[in-house]
Design a protein around this nucleic acid. Sequence first.
DNA 1: TTCTTGATACGAACACTGTTCGTTACGAAC
DNA 2: GTTCGTAACGAACAGTGTTCGTATCAAGAA
Lengths: 249, 249
Amino acid sequence: MSSTVFAMGSKEEAVPVPPWRKSRKPAPIRRQLSQDLIVETGLRVLDAEGLDALSMRRVAQELDTGPASLYAHVANKEELLELVYDRVLGEIRLPERDPGRWKDQLRAYALEVYRVLNKHADVARAALANIPTGENSLRTGEFVYGLMVEAGMPPREAALCLDRLSLYLIGDAYEGSVHISRLRASDMSTPEEYFTAFATQIADYYRALPRDRFPYLVEHIDDLIAADGEERFRYGLELLLDGIESRMP
Amino acid sequence: MSSTVFAMGSKEEAVPVPPWRKSRKPAPIRRQLSQDLIVETGLRVLDAEGLDALSMRRVAQELDTGPASLYAHVANKEELLELVYDRVLGEIRLPERDPGRWKDQLRAYALEVYRVLNKHADVARAALANIPTGENSLRTGEFVYGLMVEAGMPPREAALCLDRLSLYLIGDAYEGSVHISRLRASDMSTPEEYFTAFATQIADYYRALPRDRFPYLVEHIDDLIAADGEERFRYGLELLLDGIESRMP
DNA sequence: TTCTTGATACGAACACTGTTCGTTACGAAC
DNA sequence: GTTCGTAACGAACAGTGTTCGTATCAAGAA
């Protein structure tokens, strides 16, 4: 897609600089920076080390340059995060719209978003603060909105549904990314190990609570921590879909 | 509630320091710091200047001391934010549970949370990253969970409902706080001014989009930006409540 | 070909951030 | 009256986003 990763390593060996050349720098080889390259590098750092590690300096270092060089291609860090986020949204695959199966398609869409956002864990933490203005935000928005309008929902109400569904998708991903972040911070290796450790920790804490003040929480701890992330996501999704269905003319 | 704001000003006049005392500082008056005082100050800064302005140094400055002094009462900034958040949740008023009216009570609860979180705008931005472990998180959780179980919902499913409803409440507040943050950053004074400026900006942008790629978005811009924050919140809330109702035995 | 121009790269610096270290000074217990 | 744990705190460290001024290049103009 992006054609900017050429000229990184030249096969020709660099000619040693003549000593009489008065240039201070031994070999100030100009890198070919570009927005695409910077965004791609940012995403790589984000996936590998998390949002906290994603600084302008870190990205610059990855490109063998200084932080100031990035500002020629990116207004500021906020814009970089938006670009990274939209790049991730680009991985969302959309089917042909079929209004007759709007509920199935909406469910499949939500699960696809879930998949993509959980693949690039920390990106959601940078996403909830955004107004949908990127290329791919628009693309997915058009899909959902068009699907609902074609299915017969009044445009005004379809707008509300789009808004609330999007909030749910990003909100859930955000919550998930917090856990990923903690998993990274801890010394656990596998997600399962983290999950069980986390669950028992919460369970122990709840069990130690005063039973007279929190009778229901203490009584049903096991039920409270039973479901994993995906089951929670699916349940909330069905709640929303059923609510929408009951409003569909 | 918190009994820690005494001894701030003593009636006795401070005795002048004898010149032969080798102490460098003229009058190193010790402040009486405490966790409550720090949390309260943090909340005050948060409300007045937003989350970005809430630094350890800012809080310390407000208390006429250095940042290091805070660490005797608060483990780190993250803990401070959790404490501030839970303090805000303490403002949530809960009624007597009445399982027969569970839907009304759940709606009223959600609106109460909406009110409190929007009152302290930026706190939501510090909240979504939290596991519900504070005093008041538990208090509200016990209320909602107890209400649903008493209304007849299986404990396992009630846990899922509690989880999803909480996510919705915090997620929406987070989104709102982002707008508050932008309102603060801009030079607008009234929220209405910001709202209309923002709406027209989005509308103009959408109108300029290629109609062949985004036909539905371009066609129905006015519908897309019609609803304000509270209307959106209420709509999503009703979606969830109806979904829950259809699952209630 | 030479000169000019406009954009890009980038070193250095600024004003911040959260946090830690080592020291000081106090209130209370012995 | 002395000791002692602990709260307060000055200074510093390592890191952040961002800006300024300068150096360097590719390409267009004379």
